[in-house]
Design a binder for these strands. Structure first.
Lengths: 348, 348
DNA sequence: CTGAAAGCGCTTACAG
DNA sequence: CTGAAAGCGCTTACAG
């Protein structure tokens, strides 16, 4: 009798759980199954020996209560959140959008979740995001953005890997083989008999390995005893800025017949401007870009470009980060440059 | 003397914190500042009265220890994580990439973080992600993917909003004015004297408001006493699938002179196939897409398309979700269709 | 095979 | 203006 009464009371409590949006916790499951919290936790984590009978009881109780474990509590105890932070300039850009997709997918496979941050390349936002990620106890961070100040000696302990950006001399950097890419792009234009080859690229101020694309261009030009000419776009995320620089380029060098743009969006803007000026591509002007995302292959398939192995970059970044998280970073490569692939379209 | 000794010991402990990668906690700050945990917490949260002197002591201690609050612990107590989950098919697709950017940006402004999930439109992944998000105690979820089974009666309590997909009759749906978009696209082709207008769209099986684009096409065709002809691409994320369907379309309807594609990537694939078959655009064939992302405007600026107000969609989605989270969902609209904009390029 | 107790790092009534 | 104590929902030695 007394037992029944308690049972009824407990069911009432459960109804309240439902109505008040209260979530059942491990002790509710324990009560319902008639075991201790410890046992429920053991069943939950498949840890230690539990009789099949008890297991079944617990499983049934969990099901009836629609129990959902609270990972926050678990993370707090374990000092491990299985969350990684990802700071990108913006997922609006197809290169970062695809990179984000691959990174998140790999994380998911490995049991990690990702907290996404779009910094818009603004260092104030990068800093705010960085602090937020630390407060949220992320296990590690992947950074695709520039902010040398971000990592100071205080937080060198946090596992971090950077993509295409030097952050400090202890943080692994992953990227495509920028030098080789820049070389192949320039060599292609030379081989196609371009007389006046110009390179357009991102901000000079950034200390990114992507500068090697420019370096390769300069070296190749010099190797043919030609004068390198480069134009810099200060804000890569602003397409109006693209147009202005490109327009200036054409005004100052009406004889240009070969352009190597450091990314595909820039190359696309070059093509637009050329069309506006009735310069025919590839007859009068040859254009090659960099990145070769799926999106640009779909939307602008005729573009010649240097394709980055985005999936491999994501893979190496995650692998390196996990090694750091697991403290197996003894044999960690500090720089990894993945092979690029020249894609010849109809713009060269 | 004794005091000094304790001081020295404490400093040693702090050194260990550094070496062992242990993070200082509130009690470390309290000890260093010579106050209680309660006081430190109050300073941290600017709550209740604290003397300026104490405040300064605490701030100094926090700084010296490089103290970082643990948001996991705070969330656990507060039963509020300030994290929202975002399930998209893939950020590789420019539409979702841009939507993700805007959603994350708005969240950041409002003090929320986002846990990103790429479902690849697979319902098994959607389900897994959904469970993961609940375990991680997200305050709400934005879903851009189809899985009616996802939301069952058990978890109707969780704040959710859907973008472009009907999940249940209690979950708000946000999207562009698909019907109006489909109508304007079709009317444009009609006004341009296309004789044979065909519509290509995503999977028929999905119960998405995007089907209204097709419905509008059908209605407009009927209003001109024409026979609607539609082709369906089963997997929108697979470009090979696009090509096959489009190729069939051209084979079966060599007389086609107007195509309304339900997204820009599909439209781009149509253009590629047309070029391959030496069909000139817009003379012999007019093409219009749907989405009008920044990326497609950059890479394929000549494409005529129906532009979705991605930023507004993100805004309404977040606003609705936050209302649900704050339990102010009394006046919540269940369906919101934001105005589209016809962009006439050079493919029509 | 199972449970009582302590603790993860916070916050907040409550008391003074 | 400040502190001791309880509790958020878990996990894990430890003991039996």
């Amino acid at each position: 009798m007394v037992f029944t009464k308690i049972h009824v009371l407990f069911d009432k409590y459960l109804m309240m759980l439902g109505e008040w949006k209260l979530k059942p916790k491990i002790s509710d499951v324990a009560k319902k199954a008639g075991v201790s919290k410890t046992t429920v936790s053991r069943v939950l984590n498949n840890r230690g020996y539990i009789s099949d009978k008890t297991k079944d009881l617990v499983y049934k109780a969990m099901e009836e209560l629609h129990y959902v474990p609270n990972d926050l509590a678990r993370s707090l105890y374990k000092k491990r959140s299985y969350i990684i932070g990802l700071i990108v300039p913006t997922t609006s850009n197809p290169f970062f959008g695809e990179l984000t997709f691959h990174i998140e997918n790999l994380c998911d496979e490995l049991g990690y979740r990702v907290l996404l941050c779009n910094s818009s390349n603004r260092s104030d936002k990068e800093q705010k995001y960085w602090d937020m990620l630390l407060r949220n106890q992320v296990d590690g961070v992947i950074v695709i953005t520039y902010n040398r100040g971000l990592i100071n000696s205080d937080n060198k302990k946090n596992p971090v890997v950077a993509i295409d950006h030097y952050l400090s001399d202890t943080i692994p950097v992953i990227g495509s083989d920028n030098y080789e890419g820049g070389k192949q792009a320039t060599e292609l234009l030379v081989s196609k008999k371009c007389k006046q080859i110009i390179h357009i690229h991102g901000p000079d101020s950034l200390e990114t390995p992507a500068n090697l694309r420019k370096q390769a261009y300069v070296d190749v030009m010099n190797s043919y005893s030609r004068t390198p000419i480069t134009y810099s776009v200060e804000n890569v995320l602003d397409s109006n800025n693209h147009i202005k620089v490109i327009s200036t380029l054409f005004d100052q060098h009406p004889d240009v017949d070969g352009i190597f743009a450091s990314d595909d969006l820039l190359a696309a803007a070059v093509i637009v401007e050329a069309k506006k000026r009735e310069i025919s591509i590839p007859d009068q002007l040859k254009v090659i870009g960099y990145d070769g995302t799926e999106t640009s292959k779909s939307l602008l398939p005729e573009l010649s470009t240097i394709q980055q192995p985005i999936d491999q970059i994501a893979k190496v970044a995650i692998d390196s980060l996990l090694k750091m998280i697991e403290n197996e970073n003894h044999d960690l490569q500090l720089e990894t440059w993945l092979p690029i692939k020249l894609i010849e379209g109809r713009t060269t």
